[in-house]
């Protein structure tokens, strides 16, 4: 998704105004988002898969849609370097994953204690 526009944007130098996306990229992002929303809906509402399979489909499509929003709508692959916003975002994701996964893991011992 990102590398081609990255190398493209880099050739222009710093002072040119950054053109954040085009109608085409927004429309493509919108269509992919709709598809990624409909897939887990179909799987869940029709009971197409086992429990684990359904959970996996829901999580994978959600994460893919997060990436679509970040690249097609929020343009994190554009802007001046160094991209402190991306660094902050990655740190944020690490903390969120730690909090969520850590909470689920530690609380799973609740039944052992009781």
């Amino acid at each position: 998704m990102s590398p081609h526009s990255d190398s493209h944007g880099h050739g222009h130098g710093h002072h040119e105004e950054h053109n954040h996306g085009s109608l085409k990229s927004y429309t493509i992002g919108f269509i992919i988002s709709i598809i990624l929303t409909v897939i887990p809906m179909l799987v869940v509402f029709n009971g197409l898969m086992s429990r684990t399979g359904t959970l996996l489909v829901i999580l994978v499509t959600a994460i893919l849609q997060l990436l679509v929003q970040l690249f097609f709508f929020m343009h994190i692959n554009e802007g001046e370097k160094p991209r402190y916003n991306v660094m902050a975002l990655v740190l944020g994701f690490v903390i969120v994953i730690t909090i969520v996964a850590g909470s689920v893991w530690i609380m799973s011992f609740n039944s052992v204690v009781q």
């Binding site: 402190y84 916003n85 902050a88 975002l89 740190l91 944020g92 994701f93 903390i95 969120v96 909090i99 969520v100 850590g102 909470s103 689920v104």
Partner: peptide
């Protein structure tokens, strides 16, 4: 952007 990241942490804890 930094605000958005800190807001992500807020929602992260609520999700947890």
């Amino acid at each position: 952007w930094l605000f958005l990241v800190s807001d992500t942490l807020l929602f992260g804890t609520l999700f947890a």
